[in-house]
Amino acid sequence: MVTVTNLNKDGSLDIKYFDSKGLFTAIFIALITVEIYKYFTDHKLVIKMPEGVPDFVSRSFELITPTAFIAIFFISLRYLVSSLSGGMLLPEVIMKVLAPAIGSMDNLFVVWFVIMLRLMFWFFGIHSAVLSPVLSPIFVQYLAENIAAKEAGLPLPHFATGGVFSAFVNFTGSGVTMGLVLAMLFGKTKRYKKVAQVSLIPGLFGINEPILFGGPVILNPILFIPFVFGSSLISLMPLALMKYGFLAKPFFDPPYLPLFFEGFLTGFDWKAPFVQIVQLILSFLVYYPFFKVLEKEELKSEAESKKIHEIFTQEDNDILEDLELDF
């Protein structure tokens, strides 16, 4: 707390950085605190009590030296930052440094790049949550600013929040894969039909690991273009509509909900479900021609397997006939 607040003239605490604007500072302090505590523990720079002392008492004494150092460190850092920056607090300095990165998320091209980066991670089997430490604090700040603007009756400034990414960017799962599920469901091959049947219900709730790993989409070169490039544009479309005022900007992050409910609740705009229907249609159109290539290969493979099975079956029958003749 000592790094993010000042005393007002009336003696009260200035708490303007206790909200989302102080989130990056909290992350920064938490990381440093853990590393300091780990260093003191690894190098045994703690007060050790005799063996007869109860564990809870011993652990309390072990915390004294790292806690004292952490307090002194951040108090010193606070006054060092203040003296070098002309009285600014650490959150103010951090926000000024991160301002270009935070502000860039209001740019559609930057958001498109972020969406494609997330899909690239997924394509190579890496969960897109690896980007959450960077994106989540920005989304929380944007949501808080949108809520404040909504309460003040002002235009909402931001279109990118965690709720929007969950409802529209990850519509039916990362890569908007419901179009691929539907293509498989009405396909001609047994394997893809079974994968689609397993993937359909989870996809309605934005869970698409069954199709990502069962299709598979992961590391499938045929599906790289629709998954990374095609679906990123489909995901970006609602955000573009928000930016230019055709769709309400978000002021609420709803929990995981079935299709259309989550999108509606982000901004309580009746047009949101219709936008998601368009996303669904576009998803099917983007994935369908690439799925037909997969289906053609699968049908060819099934035909070859059937032919091999018939050959072996015939050979087995011939062997059985020969054995019967011998007897």
Rank of each mutant, 00 (worst) to 15 (best):
L23Y: 02
L90D: 00
L219F: 15
E35V: 08
F113G: 15
G179A: 14
F274V: 15
V81P: 00
T161V: 12
R78E: 03
P157Y: 13
E35H: 07
F251K: 05
G86Y: 01
L154I: 13
Y39T: 11
L219W: 07
L239Q: 08
T67D: 04
M1A: 11
T65W: 02
K296Y: 11
F327L: 08
L23N: 13
A129V: 15
I29V: 14
F252E: 04
E262W: 04
S235G: 15
I75C: 02
S12G: 10
W270T: 09
L80E: 05
F56A: 11
F290K: 05
G87R: 00
P226C: 11
T266N: 05
Y288E: 09
G230S: 12
L131M: 12
S235F: 01
G87K: 01
Y288L: 11
G267S: 12
D316E: 11
L285Q: 11
D316F: 12
L117Q: 03
P91Y: 03
W122I: 15
F186D: 07
A26R: 03
V134P: 00
A303G: 05
L180W: 12
S301E: 13
P254F: 10
L320R: 15
I70L: 14
S235Y: 07
K300T: 06
F56Y: 13
E62R: 14
F291H: 12
A167P: 05
S136R: 10
L282P: 01
I147H: 02
I102N: 09
V97F: 14
K296P: 00
S60H: 04
L117V: 15
V169I: 15
T65F: 09
F124H: 06
F227G: 10
L7G: 04
K38E: 08
M95D: 06
A148L: 01
S82M: 07
R191P: 06
G187P: 03
L182H: 12
V111C: 03
D316L: 10
F260Q: 02
L185Q: 13
L236D: 03
F274W: 13
Y79L: 04
S58E: 01
A30D: 09
S301N: 14
S82F: 01
V81G: 00
A167N: 08
L131D: 13
R191M: 10
D106Q: 10
G52V: 07
L31R: 01
F139H: 11
I75L: 04
V114F: 04
T41I: 03
S76V: 14
G163N: 11
